[in-house]
Design a protein around this nucleic acid. Sequence first.
DNA 1: GTGAAAGCGCTAACAG
DNA 2: CTGTTAGCGCTTTCAC
Lengths: 357, 357
Amino acid sequence: MAHRETQQRRPSIHDVASRAGVSAATVSKVLAGVTTVKPENAQRVFDAVDLLGYRVDPLASDMRRAKRRIIGAIMPEFESEFFGQMVSELEGLAEQRGFTLVAASSRESEAREKEILARMHDWRVAGIVLAPVRNEHGPAAGFMKANGMTGVLIDRVLADDAFDTVSADSAAASAEVARALVGKGHRHILVVGLGQQAATVRARLEGFRATALQLVPDIRIDVVLAESEVEPLRTLLSDYFSEGASRGERPTAVYSLFLKGTLVALSEFRRRGWHCPDDISLVGFDDAEWMQVTWPAIAAVVQPVREIASNAMDVLFRRIEGEGGPPRARLEPCKVLMRESVGSPGSGPHLGGGSRQ
Amino acid sequence: MAHRETQQRRPSIHDVASRAGVSAATVSKVLAGVTTVKPENAQRVFDAVDLLGYRVDPLASDMRRAKRRIIGAIMPEFESEFFGQMVSELEGLAEQRGFTLVAASSRESEAREKEILARMHDWRVAGIVLAPVRNEHGPAAGFMKANGMTGVLIDRVLADDAFDTVSADSAAASAEVARALVGKGHRHILVVGLGQQAATVRARLEGFRATALQLVPDIRIDVVLAESEVEPLRTLLSDYFSEGASRGERPTAVYSLFLKGTLVALSEFRRRGWHCPDDISLVGFDDAEWMQVTWPAIAAVVQPVREIASNAMDVLFRRIEGEGGPPRARLEPCKVLMRESVGSPGSGPHLGGGSRQ
DNA sequence: GTGAAAGCGCTAACAG
DNA sequence: CTGTTAGCGCTTTCAC
């Protein structure tokens, strides 16, 4: 047959072996690049491989070697730019080392997170990159610990006593945001966040608060935290502003500690007819492509996705290769993009709020 | 030992077998739910499983059955909400049927798309959900055909003679957009798109054009298409508007056929100081969360991600289970969200363009 | 240099 | 009802 028609069974190493007139073991050696094979035979193997279109089955190969070239990645979600980019980066990095990345979304659920992890353990993945839903003390990290899995924790973590961690330097970035807002003259600022991400929120909040208070000791910083869901935050925020209004006071700037918070804040501003930066200023942690094309462009903290991904993979592979030593906590610096949504208080034409619905 | 400390080798089916005093085959049967096992033995197996914390190795299991419970998904990118949601949906659907989804990003490259596909073939995945970079005639689809892989094509495809396809009903949605814009009084409309996505662009463009022309025979519809990259589109769009300006003419509305085009359009409007909808109206194919919180909110066509995902998986699994018959092309209806970015021409205060940079 | 044999962890006949 | 046997596709001693 000239061209094998829609074949059902792919050629196995034995097919190659018999076509090349050698044993399967020899084929395996040739393909593994062992040089002690007679050149003539090696050539026959290569010819047979070409002829049959043979490719090794990586899973069967891994099976025998009892070491699977698979890296598992668990993200809280796939829908945001941040985690989308992260998965994309991790995929490329794994590939470069001959590994396949299997990504899964925990959908912001710790229960699901653990289930996925168990499934990845069943798959005998070589290592895990885990971006926990909550923080480093969740059940997933516990499971990894208990089962001796090798892994790295990223994003919503600061440090851990069992795993290496890599995340953005939230505190430094928040300090920079504080300097910028204070510099613009803001003296009453609202910070919004999600309480369940304890470590990160604390770092971001404290980094901000410490710096702001240091610059202006009597600055007023309000905090609105929802526990774990975004919807309640909407209500909390609305209540917060309504209450303030009844006392005739309101912050001149909002700093959101996470992307969805930025969206909720914008949405609330819309509802009240407030415009940035005239009526209120806004900075959000996490950048997104759209933030630079809207009017006004939204100021944001850009997380160093590539750096986080590449450091995470580096340390993960070092651990996979058996490197010992205590876990290390890495922080990668962020960039702060001060865009049009930030202005000086009291300088806008709309002070007091607009009336457009 | 009370609790096995950080174990290196997971228990195998043989460990369970010997602990339970039965053979590995029996363990396998019990775990597969075969009912012809003596209850007493079954119980001993369950006990041993619990004691050892045993879980079957799905890859080893698949190996033996020569059928892998893995579905491959290939998306052009992971960074956008649309594909992020898509992967998330597909993951859940695969999981429901006891399969694992392995997702990969072709990064808008047909070459990479084919490489990934080959790798998935090496993995002997049971089926593929492919969202091609370009359209159904790319090298990836050819590879799948040539190798007798079973798969479904989604998103940037209309129909294929070898594979089932599922996509959004772009033409109908575009017709609806046309009706809306014409109804608002627009008589000069610009459509922007990406040429390489031939099938989809044609459907969206023609669906729009045909309806608009039918309603207003002498309506003017300009088209700006970049071949495959987004950056050139920026230049093309800028040139288009500059040229029009030199002749004192300009469309009153823009319909972008894809998400990045909407961003490019917004960015260009910013550059020129044009505001929506006063200076120009905008509708984009593909919705995003931010579009409803910006000022103005951006009108968009919402693709039925869940429906596409679930239909794709349905038909894919039917094919995996051996269902025959000719390939079917499915179109799922979209929703059109007419938001504030669309107004009537000539009614805005800024006509002629603003001056804010 | 090379191939036979063993076996990764599992399941599907097929006897008993 | 249960265990033995025979692999899935591959790699790795280890004799020859």
